[in-house]
Amino acid sequence: MRRAIDDAEAVARALGGDLDAYGVLVARYTVRAHRAAFLLGAGEESDDVVQEAFVKAFRHLSRFRVGEPFGPWLLRIVTNDTRNFTRSRRRREALALRLPSAESGGAAATGPVDEVLAAERRSQLVAAVNGLPDTERQVLVCRYFLDLSEAETAQVLEWPLGSVKSRTSRALNRLRGQLVPREQNPVLDG
């Protein structure tokens, strides 16, 4: 049985040429990296983008600082590759963000009125996020859909921390403005 090794040890071993140790990192971070690539617009090509990112990460492993968390460092490469990919295609996958299809029509629509309304609001919100300018959409994806902290988001997107804060609040304001006005915006507070 392979003893579970932590990220730092896996990185150290991978730097020494131990590809099996790097395989541990790949297995550990594939789902997260893939989610990031997909939500940032790589679409069907997410697997390829992630594979490319892992290969690149290995090559640049010597730049990885000991003690730094591996996740955000990897996601920065994934994000870059996703950007390059979408730039080269001159598009990002149309409606990168989508809700499961049941959400828009099926079960939810036949449920109690509250649920239907909530589902409708979620659909509107997704459409609104999709319609945001790239930077604002990216910051929301990182902060809320990938659950990254402000500092991690700054690292992943390679922006100053101030830009993360300002773009987040600008994006949220824009969404509030676009959604059907209500007394509160429970969805946006989460």
């Binding site: 590809l19 594939t30 893939h34 939500l39 290969v55 989508r98 809700l99 859909f145």
Partner: peptide, 26 residues
């Protein structure tokens, strides 16, 4: 927003480990 993120549809991904390692071996 976070709750919404959990509901977003992300297609499943396969295990890329073998593919990545093969490329790195090359």
């Amino acid at each position: 927003m976070r709750a919404l993120g959990r509901e977003l549809d992300v297609p499943p991904t396969g295990d890329l480990t073998a593919a990545v390692l093969q490329r790195l071996e090359g």
